[in-house]
Design a protein around this nucleic acid. Structure first.
Lengths: 229, 229
DNA sequence: TCAAAAGTGTTCTCCCTACACCCATGG
DNA sequence: CCATGGGTGTAGGGAGAACACTTTTGA
């Protein structure tokens, strides 16, 4: 028998979708999967899929992420649930959407799905379903969250320079900062640890490397903090 | 036949729940419904119910709100979807949760559901399902949102005094403000319109009445604004 | 030796904070 | 007339913005 799961009232299908952001040092990037099956076969979409009955949405999103991109343990945040009745032509599908922040260089290698590809946020192809809308909402949320969470650090490599951090913030917010004031502001938060190392190779003078100080951040978060930009 | 809706894969049920905040001039209040049926019969819960197949989650939340409390056109915001597999003992139920902000005095009268009652936020009875958790999350989100949205105005009557506005902000954030600085800050935003009226009766000296200036706010929101507290 | 990148410090201004005085009303 | 609440003004401090000089390195 084909339709073995029966209910007294109609039930929608529930999926998770995951908008994965990365940073290549210059632009924000989004990881997309080319759909191999109908509907929207050949179109690009976010990794995601149907929720299993014994997992939370978060678990489902993490599982799908791993299955489709090989990524594990990404920083992930639920941001909205999309429920337009006709958003999937097959049947009614409600999707719980997450965004994830990953270090782009950790993905490039372990790419199970040959069809996964990074796209710059400002040059996204036509997407399946209502994923354009989902992407807009995810981007907006990312821009809001950056004021309260040091999400930048999820997107950068372990060691980074102030300059790289600034470029990331500028890419996310679409603003340009004064180099000196940006450094001062970040240093003042005391969530950076000086690694006493310098970057190499370098085009000109070598730059100091820093890493994110997680303990200090946790302390700040308890007190409540806000990044002003 | 009882189970007439069949699918090839298991589907969870989907509900909406709505955390309704009001303000009585002194404390934040939450509107709860006493459950008339099992499970959790007799316990208090948020208005909500199963989503219909042809409505969005937002439409469903508004519909349930109207059915259970008589409230229409409330300001409503989706804030999280709860998906723990065992959160409902009957079957797997995923709930899309909203919070609503209403003028408390507009509800008291048209109360269809005899079992609906306001409770002060700091004295909430034991709730059904995982509604305690949902409430904590809603409250947290409300506190965050107040920095970006003039949500106070959804909770106050059309005309209000600065003092009332301050009491509301104090109730939401759990802080006390300096009377003069608070007034200055609000005035500086220019989202209040002086009604050239005074409140009456008054215990002592009469206080000016204001109303919220929606156009000015829209302008501010486009530019992006932030209330510092 | 020159250009480009990076590290650092100073001033100015504005906004937030703390605080005080005056006015209006009811008892 | 006095207590209570409401309206408004001011001085001080701290943080952000604007801005300049020095150092290092590769060409």
């Amino acid at each position: 028998m084909n339709n073995q799961f029966c209910y007294r009232y109609p039930h929608p299908a529930v999926t998770t979708d995951c908008v994965i952001f990365g940073f290549d040092g210059e632009h924000l990037q989004v990881l997309l999967i080319e759909r191999g099956i109908e509907p929207y076969k050949g179109k690009w979409a976010f990794p995601g899929g149907f929720l299993k009955m014994d997992e939370t949405a978060e678990e489902g999103a993490l599982r799908e992420l791993k299955e489709e991109t090989g990524l594990e343990g990404a920083y992930m945040e639920q941001f909205h649930t999309f429920s337009a009745p006709e958003r999937d032509p097959r049947e009614r599908v409600i999707t719980i959407a997450y965004y994830a922040l990953v270090k782009i260089q950790e993905v490039k290698g372990g790419d199970d799905a040959a069809s996964a590809r990074w796209f710059p946020l400002d040059d996204i192809p036509s997407l399946a379903f209502d994923h354009d809308y989902i992407l807009r909402m995810a981007t907006q949320r990312l821009r809001e969250q950056i004021h309260f969470q040091p999400i930048g650090f999820e997107l950068l490599p372990e060691k980074f320079t102030i300059k790289e951090l600034q470029l990331l913030y500028e890419a996310i917010l679409g603003i340009n900062f004064d180099r000196r004031n940006f450094a001062k502001k970040m240093m003042h938060l005391e969530i950076l640890t000086d690694l006493e190392e310098t970057i190499w190779p370098t085009p000109k003078r070598e730059a100091k490397l820093y890493k994110f100080n997680a303990e200090k951040y946790e302390e700040l978060k308890r007190k409540g903090f806000r990044l002003e930009f």
